[in-house]
Amino acid sequence: MIHLTGVKKAFNQGRANEFWALKGIDLHVAQGKVTVFRGPSGSGKTTLLTMVGCLARPTSGRVKLKERDISSLPERFLTDIRRSTFGFVFQNFNLLKGITAVENVMVPAYPLGGDHGALRHRAHELLDRLEMGPKAKSMAEWLSGGEAQRVAIARALINDPQVVIADEPTANLDSARSAQFLDIVAEMKRDGRTILMTSHDPLVAEAGVVDHVVTMRDGVVVEAR
């Protein structure tokens, strides 16, 4: 589904502190599978996810999504693809403070201009499925870590994406919560979604739902299985 060929990414290009975070990545991500990226801190996992998830453009190399070359698309069109194809769960969840959980879930759909009532209904449905129904009207900043993550997952799913990308999803959770998260991942996989995660946690890499594990170091893939 997603093909990367020779993807490189530089930061602060042309300046003294120029840094190549990715130094030529070739990768294939299959549809409907769960892939985990692991490697030491600073090895470029997050950077790679931003390339795959259309959050940023590679400095050179090709990214193909379903045979379409998206590596030289302008931001405007990347956003378009991103919001219809990808859902994101961030490491520190990144909910908007001061608004309720359900509103947080709805935010990604605002620019799409769908019907407001239907959207609210869908958001509640998602929260119910993640057992967050009773907390739907709570302010985002009052939620516990696990609750916040489930709200973040609901937000990632609101536009019904084919691919869910999660960066360090279990870093802020205890092991029971992590296991619960993996259950949700399994459910998303059953729905036919492709899941990409990064993790330091061996528990995640060894989990039953995971199909592929990609190991990175210093901006290159050292092992893929």
């Binding site: 959050l55 931001e75 405007r76 956003t79 378009d80 991103r82 919001r83 994101f88 961030f90 990144n94 909910l95 908007l96 935010v107 990604p108 605002y110 620019p111 937000r155 536009n159």
Partner: peptide, 16 residues
């Protein structure tokens, strides 16, 4: 700033 960053990450376009 964090809010704008989040909005952009979850799929808002610059012009939005």
């Amino acid at each position: 700033k964090r809010e704008i960053g989040i909005l952009k990450a979850v799929g808002w376009e610059t012009s939005d």
